[in-house]
């Protein structure tokens, strides 16, 4: 039994085989294509709060793990990683998000305020063309069309507060 996890840009298959004393053998292989299999013998001991002791192949490290809305956030060895768990990947697969055409749903990467809407429904847009500008932490972020296409819907309203997941503009590929 293996489950898919996403980390950064890649997806890996993870199999956990439980051993005695709370140890587990964790086998990680690339979900697609060729790649070396990695095997870890590990034990995870929660300490309190987000802290845990991770014993990996005989070495121990303090890690922090916290569950966010759509990822497990892990701090380890001075690196912070967002690991997308199987159930979130599954949900995304079912809803069609993450599929090739999801790029046309323009949503902000962070909470903020819409300060400029540059398109109207029916407009033709070119790849890379600015469609909405949002302001967060006194910095402007411009959201652009992912490909040539036609604007099918505009929900963004100047002055409105928005968050990741909110649909601002919908673009249908040409």
């Amino acid at each position: 039994m293996s489950l898919n996890y996403q980390i950064g840009e890649r997806t890996v298959r993870v199999r956990v085989d439980v051993e005695v004393d709370g140890f587990a053998r964790v086998t990680i292989t690339p979900a697609e294509g060729e790649g070396a299999e990695r095997l870890f013998r590990a034990r995870y001991v929660p300490i309190g709060g987000s802290r845990a002791l991770l014993e990996l192949d005989g070495r121990q490290t303090i890690v922090h793990v916290a569950a966010g809305d759509d990822a497990q956030h892990v701090s380890i060895g001075g690196e912070h990683h967002a690991v997308v768990p199987p159930e979130v990947l599954e949900k995304r697969r079912k809803s069609g998000a993450g599929a090739a055409d999801a790029g046309g749903h323009i949503t902000p990467p962070m909470p903020g305020q819409v300060i400029k809407v540059m398109v109207q429904a029916g407009d033709l847009v070119a790849k890379g063309q600015a469609v909405v500008v949002i302001m967060a932490m006194k910095m402007e972020t411009t959201l652009c069309a992912p490909y040539d296409g036609k604007v099918t819907e505009v929900r963004a309203v100047e002055g409105a507060q928005v968050k990741p997941g909110d649909l601002l503009v919908d673009i249908e590929a040409a």
Partner: peptide
């Protein structure tokens, strides 16, 4: 972004989900 501990992070995430 450094990725030296990426797979170890996956191990931690997978085991954390089981231990919770």
């Amino acid at each position: 972004q450094p990725t030296a501990h990426e797979l170890e992070a996956v191990v931690a995430a997978a085991l954390a989900a089981r231990s919770r």
